[in-house]
Computed example of a mutant assay.
Amino acid sequence: MNPSTQLAPALMLGLIGALPWQTQAQTAPASGVQIFGVIDAAVGSVTSPSGVNALDKPVNKQLSGGLSTSNWGLRGQEDLGEGRQAIFELSSFIRNESGAAGRSDALPAPVNVAADPYFSRAAWLGLSDARLGRVRLGNITTLLFTNSVTSNALGDSTTFSPINLLTFVGSPLSGGTAWANSVVYDSPVRAGLSGSLAYAASQNLGGPNSAARLAYAQGAFNSSLAWQSVNRNPVTFADGTSSNDTRAWQWAASYDFSPLKVFGHLGQTQNRGTAAAPQAVRYRVWDLSASLPIGAGRWLAGYGSRTTGNTPTAVAATAAGGNVSRKVLTLGYDHYLSARTEVYVLASQDQTRTRQQAATPVLVNATGHSFAVGIRHRF
């Protein structure tokens, strides 16, 4: 590997590799391949991140993802001249507490989470042009997940970030955080404005999926709007808790008051059911989070809510789905030992109100608490 092609430390501080807001804002190496990744290890007491139910109790465990899901990969580019490049990324999730690949093994209904293939985080090839933007083909992070993690004090955490938990983990949303069989176009940035379009072919499985995102960044202010439609297929990786067709939109914004930086989201997920059993249940989702630098670290806080005025289908007492409401509060401190290594402590409270099965369906309240101490290293 040519040392001149290594990523600069500033690039490695990005939340997710090779997404539009990173590559378009920086000058990429002319040609080469880079190894990159994040190892996140934590210990703590964690209640189900899918949303607590009346029978859930905290579990003492080791995590491979308190602030970030551990992952590693290869990213490369070849200079084709005249501002054009061939680009690719192959990256995999890691369960560093055991050495296993992926985030989890296959889980049956009602969770409906597929086992992660080795390069389930990203596996794509594309072409970029400094004037026209870029096109990527393969397994690619969804535009909705990109929208969520880039305007969020707790970044890409799917264990403690309220907006990520409410939108992607134990939620009515289908489609997961990456789509297979995708074609994605990312525009160049013009006067702070950029956009992306995504289409995931069904490959004879049903579907297809489609999405769009528009983003604006100028000085201390950032704002973006994402929309997606999922027809449950293609079969995606870690597809969430829903086997239904869904549509969702999300508006995100942030402002850096220096030193305090404030983030927010407002959105909606519509559970449309299936062709055999149509539904029209809408869930409103919002959150606020903040990051306040203190010395060599930063205080983190986030609060989010998901509610519905409709009546979700009643579920068993052991199921995480069917929430009438879910509210998550997270507080934490993140201390930097260097530009690439940090230690952190996080605590959260998760409250749900769920319509549960009975002779006469009843609403049951549940509260869970999670706590973790961890270390995160980027390379």
Rank of each mutant, 00 (worst) to 15 (best):
N2K: 08
N2R: 10
P3C: 14
T5F: 02
Q6L: 11
L7N: 03
L7I: 05
A8P: 02
A8K: 04
A8C: 06
A8V: 04
G17W: 03
G17D: 11
A25E: 15
A30W: 05
G37Q: 11
V38M: 11
A42L: 09
T47P: 00
S48I: 15
P49E: 12
S50N: 09
N53C: 10
A54T: 13
A54N: 09
D56W: 04
V59C: 03
G66I: 14
S70G: 07
N71Q: 14
R75P: 01
G76F: 04
Q77R: 01
D79Q: 04
R84L: 09
A86V: 08
F88T: 04
E89T: 13
S91Q: 04
F93L: 13
A100K: 05
A101V: 11
G102I: 14
A109C: 08
V111Y: 08
A115W: 02
A115M: 03
D116W: 07
Y118H: 06
A122W: 01
W124P: 01
G126Q: 03
L127P: 01
R131N: 14
R134W: 01
N139K: 05
N147Q: 13
V149E: 01
V149N: 02
V149H: 03
L154A: 06
T158F: 15
P162H: 09
F168P: 00
F168W: 14
W179K: 00
W179A: 06
A180G: 05
N181G: 06
Y185A: 05
Y185S: 03
A191K: 01
S196W: 04
A198M: 15
Q203K: 13
G206T: 09
G206D: 05
R213I: 07
Y216T: 03
G219S: 13
F221C: 06
Q228I: 08
S229D: 15
S229P: 00
S242T: 03
L260W: 02
K261A: 13
K261N: 14
K261W: 10
F263A: 02
Q268C: 06
R272I: 03
G273Y: 05
P278Y: 09
R282D: 15
R282I: 13
Y283V: 08
R284K: 12
R284P: 00
W286P: 00
D287I: 07
P293C: 13
P293F: 11
G297H: 06
W299A: 15
T307Q: 13
T308S: 09
T308N: 05
G309D: 15
G309L: 14
N310C: 09
T311S: 15
P312C: 13
A314R: 05
N323R: 08
S325H: 11
S325Y: 14
G332P: 01
Y336I: 06
T341Q: 11
V343I: 15
Q351D: 08
T352F: 10
T352I: 12
R353C: 13
A358T: 04
T360D: 15
V362E: 12
L363S: 10
L363P: 00
F371A: 13
